[in-house]
Design a protein around this nucleic acid. Structure first.
Lengths: 221, 221
DNA sequence: CAGCATCCGCTTTGATACTG
DNA sequence: CAGTATCAAAGCGGATGCTG
């Protein structure tokens, strides 16, 4: 194993999770829960199968991932995060927040997955009126519908549909994200191809208030 | 440039700062302030000089680092973090916290630098009695003395000495760190070669209360 | 000396093919 | 389903040399 050889907490962290793909594997395990090898590979487009196997082996050795052989009737291997591996969630949340300005650039070749958007939205949105009645927002963007819900003062986002959401946004992911993060207003999002249904006021319940849309200018500190 | 090709905030962050050495360069710039090329290389033992040059160029292109040519009398190039680059501090702090359990293992080949210890201590300690009189603790470990001070409810740690610190710890870094983080008690630290001077009560002002010394068992989440 | 660029051998990664 | 095997390409580490 290649190590920085520094008695430094940051360097030692990077010795463990600094390799390519490692943190994305942890992301998949966080958002999917215990997963099969094949499902992980499906959630990591472009990863070489030998690399996924090697990374999982390393993560297991480091105690971040546990392998679980399901008994005969199911007969499959599940990979799950240990508490130590789950402890990376705050790190990943901070990286998501720091990277938000980079989402203003969507390369045509970028793969879009609603699961990633939902995962990121949980870190980026917050409930500004925790005492109010729960609200539900549905997004129709990416490959699957996303459900945003306020719950116990938190904002939860996951794949799913609601019978009667309080509001709905349909269209390309970039302006929808830009509007929910707070970089652009609803009319600008609509000009970029977003369609709204339901009460426009409910968005303000969870919307962020960042002011920095540009990836070059944004100082997140 | 190699990219993950995902429209995901985490993946895009890693596209920018996921390369080897990048985050350690940011660490050096955070703890040193604007730095010369040579000083950066000195703070990153083992980095190849061409890699440092390449990383700095990348960081400049991404807008995290700015290059500054000092005028003729000084005639040197300074590299400084932009606000965007400085925005990585919370990410690095979380990585430091997550990596703390890894500091229970000190490889004989690990380079020890007091600056790294001071930087990490700032993330790991907090002032439990912000209204009390300011306290000063000096550490004699690593290559240079470290000064820990309470200030405005924060704990600051930097290289330096005090005329009359309220307390002092001398000895190997591992037990000193273990004691300050809260994994072991003072008598255990002393048994591991730590010597104390001054009031033992002042340590409780800033000490952490983590309970998990083992890198394998610690669930930080 | 500060701030690189070049060259070379080794390691890691990516793509694909194949297996119990 | 859950990998292993193989091989080419890219990245990295170390040494050395160049330039103002």
């Amino acid at each position: 194993m290649r190590t920085y050889g520094e008695y430094c907490s940051l360097a030692k962290s990077l010795d463990v999770i600094g390799n390519r793909w490692t943190l994305l594997i942890v992301r998949e395990l966080l958002l999917r829960g215990p997963s099969r090898y094949t499902d992980l590979r499906e959630g990591l487009p472009g990863i070489a199968t030998n690399l996924l196997a090697e990374r999982l082996r390393e993560l297991e050795e480091e105690g971040l991932v546990a392998r679980e052989e399901a008994p005969p009737p199911i007969a499959t291997t599940l990979f799950r995060l240990t508490p130590r591996g789950g402890g990376l969630r705050p790190v990943i949340e901070r990286l998501i927040l720091w990277g938000a300005p980079l989402m203003t650039v969507q390369d045509p070749k970028d793969v879009v997955r609603s699961q990633w958007l939902a995962f990121a939205l949980e870190s980026m949105l917050s409930d500004h009126e925790p005492q109010g009645p729960a609200v539900t927002i549905e997004l129709r963007t990416g490959d699957q519908p996303i459900l945003i819900e306020t719950r116990d003062g938190d904002v939860k986002a996951r794949l799913g549909s609601a019978e009667r959401p309080d509001a709905m946004l349909l269209g390309p992911p970039k302006p929808i994200l830009g509007f929910l993060i707070g970089w652009i207003e609803l009319d600008a999002a609509e000009a970029a191809g977003v369609r709204r249904e339901g009460d426009p006021g409910v968005f303000e319940r969870v919307r962020g208030l960042s002011a920095e849309p540009s990836p070059a200018a944004a100082g997140a500190g």
